[in-house]
Nucleic acid binder design. Structure first.
Lengths: 226, 226
DNA sequence: TCAGTTATAATAGTATTACTATCATTTCTG
DNA sequence: CAGAAATGATAGTAATACTATTATAACTGA
């Protein structure tokens, strides 16, 4: 399979990091570093040291670290949508699509060799811990106007469309799917850190249990009338 | 009705702010200021100016601004649990309790004169925008060991108990309720800032629509077997 | 009432962060 | 090989999140 890349919203970056060696290094190493340090402790100075470059050089690719996070999370949403498409495009029944979709959303994320310089396992952990910080800011409205949340919205719209196919009378398809997408991350976080808020554990079958939980949540709601 | 206060976990503060005039002012004005500026732009220097005091004085009440946020959010959970108790303690049927519970969770929050120096409307907006930041940190585990998330966990446990009463076979009561509690905030945020991720609007009946959405989500899941 | 404790104010200072600016050097391109 | 573009090296700034010190005001018990 040829090496693929995603075309991300150009407002996310100043210079496209996928097109240069330094840019690729920034992406690759920032994933590892944010995973290790957390987004608050992460900064461009530490990143520059790690890749033997300078702060100033990194600022030529990303306006600030928030945009870099938006870029990484945007990349994740594209990747997830790509995987969902891959596993659903041979299916006709929208209900079956939703089932497969839940499996892909809930599954353990593993390194995907289709995409070089992105460690999907680490990126998944970043999304779990930092996703909400992408939009819980004072600039959410201007960021949104620039289309920086396009990946999330696109995926939500697609899946919500299948919900409506299954039951056109269901009044909350988008709310249901955004809830599903966020919940899939939150419950994993709770399992790891606040276990009394969930019934997902830390065992190896946690992803199966998550799938079951999300499955009942989604499918029972969709079938309801009210 | 006499003026009430909540007994919050003492690890949240260095000196109990409810016991002194300055402490009460810190609480009261920080709610307004965080609501206006957002938590990132908020700091103790600005707060000190606003209440004609000094940074150093505020640091004698709260170790840092994160603890202050935890305090405010903890207060909110106590308040919500108090309201839920108020409206459910005369009910015997757990299913009925869940219905009322959803109404209280989804309702528009209005100023509650039972509690002086807390503006519940502003606090509710803070919780919507900043709640996730209380636990999405690197110190979540040590904060949790100190019991700083006690309010959230206590409420989740109580409602999850009613879920189990309704259907002892349902395997995810805590996951379902934590999802419900978070979703109730997230969907309001989306309605205000990322409307394509929800079907709740900004109209006056938004809280009724939210209640309906959460109702189907909860009640259909609880009744399911799998 | 006054000595002693405690709370607050006033002020200063520090390390880190999130940038911006400038200029030199390397690399890539027609 | 000239010129442009990308990167590196270095410096500097305003703001943040504190800590420390000393002075003053307020309350408390004997």
């Amino acid at each position: 399979m040829p090496a693929l890349t995603f075309k991300l919203n150009p407002h996310l970056y100043l210079r496209d990091p996928q097109h240069t060696e330094l840019g690729q290094k920034i992406i690759q190493v920032s994933v590892d570093l944010i995973d290790r340090l957390g987004f608050e402790q992460f900064n461009f100075k530490k990143l520059a040291e790690e890749i033997d470059s300078t702060e100033a050089s990194i600022y030529r690719y990303f306006e600030n670290k928030h945009r870099l996070l938006l870029y990484l999370v945007g990349w994740y949403w594209n990747w997830l949508e790509y995987r969902i498409d891959m596993f659903t495009n041979n299916l006709a029944d929208p209900k079956e699509k939703l089932r497969v979709c839940i499996r892909v959303i809930a599954e353990e994320k593993q390194y995907d060799s289709t995409f070089e310089f992105i460690n999907e396992e680490a990126l998944y952990r970043i999304v779990i811990a930092e996703l909400d910080k992408t939009y819980l800011t004072k600039q959410v409205d201007s960021d949104n106007k620039e289309g920086l949340f396009g990946g999330f919205k696109s995926l939500c719209k697609k899946i919500a469309g299948w919900v409506t196919e299954v039951n056109p009378a269901y009044p909350f398809p988008h709310a249901l799917i955004s809830t599903l997408l966020l919940t899939s991350k939150q419950q994993i976080f709770f399992a790891d850190h606040l276990p009394s808020l969930t019934n997902i554990g830390i065992e190896t079958d946690r992803y199966n249990r998550l799938e079951t939980f999300l499955g009942t949540l989604l499918l029972n709601s969709v079938q309801s009338k009210s």
